[in-house]
């Protein structure tokens, strides 16, 4: 299991499109993904889950990956965050 902290740096936050991209990416891997914001923890492969975090710009998140390809998964997802979900 790997845990990594990450900050939402795209202006609109994890709204519909970035959330969709995040979930889409996560489902390409076999490992499980949990996303935590403060006390709330959701399934990273569920759009409903990710949306309910209502993670705005500047939110601090924890990505918790667990499974055979957890390393690759987190790398791919971190890249999405860094690239601001191709937003700007």
């Amino acid at each position: 299991m790997i845990i990594r902290r990450i900050k939402v740096i795209n202006r609109l936050g994890l709204h519909a499109r970035p959330s969709t991209l995040l979930v889409k990416k996560a489902t390409q891997f076999r490992a499980e993904l949990k996303v935590r914001k403060e006390e709330m923890e959701v399934n990273g492969k569920s759009l409903l889950g990710v949306l309910t975090l209502a993670a705005e710009y500047g939110s601090e998140l924890e990505l918790i990956a667990n499974g055979i390809d957890e390393e690759e998964m987190l790398m791919a997802i971190e890249r999405l965050f860094q690239e601001k979900f191709e937003e700007e």
Binding site: V23, N43, K45, S46, L47
Partner: peptide, 9 residues
């Protein structure tokens, strides 16, 4: 489409 395959929902 993502909503339609959301395992949680």
């Amino acid at each position: 489409k993502m909503i339609l395959q959301d395992p949680e929902m």
